[in-house]
Amino acid sequence: MSPALLEVDGVTKRFGGLSALNDLSFSVGDGEIVSIIGPNGAGKSTVFNVITGLYPPDEGDVRLRGQSIVGLSPNRITKAGIARTFQNVHLFPNMSVLENAMVGQHSRSKAGVFGSIARTPRVRREEAVIRQRAEECLGFFGKRLAGYRQDQPAFALSYANRRRLEMARALATDPVMMLLDEPTAGMNPKETLELRDHIVRMRDELSLTVLVIEHDMRVVKGVSDRVVACDYGRKIAEGTYEEVANDEQVIEAYLGKRHEELG
């Protein structure tokens, strides 16, 4: 049996005395959509940061198709095929929408110093391909990021469009796997529904594997093949949405949290 696309194996990450991740293991198979849920502070984004190489794990391993990617720089991991978005949108705010997406193509192109200076036919062709790919990725969101908007600086976009642009930029890295960090945060119900469809389309139309951190249970329910629930950096449940939603520990994690909040 070939290994799963992504395996997170016994990962522990500590910040000072705090364990953000504690012996966390799960795997994601080809073409799956897996959601990670958990209360605030459960270490969900830290998982993403460890997978994409922003933090080295203190213990454990992360494997892509059976090969360890621990210790690789983030740009190498992106090149290996993992793309991501961020919890608080991080665009290149002063670059145009199109340019933002074009940066995504960076690791799929080669033009070097001399080629760029001489602007050889090969480099011109490559540049045309980059542009075309970027436009296609923006086109994934229909008319939202098309037309005149492509030449606007990214900071001028609405909040929802910034989230979409971030996803388009990630798509432009030509990934095999997409990590989405709370893609619907701050969106209204209509936009949230639209986004749910986009996540499903990423799998169905683009053959991507998707790992998504999400708070909105309707989205989680609507898209997930499997759900991983975390609390305090540990996995507390894994399974279909229904299984996880009815798990005692999960309910307690959420309700317990609520009790604390209510004081």
Partner: peptide
């Protein structure tokens, strides 16, 4: 950091 994460 984002540039790094985008493959640069």
């Amino acid at each position: 950091q984002v540039a790094d994460a985008m493959g640069v």
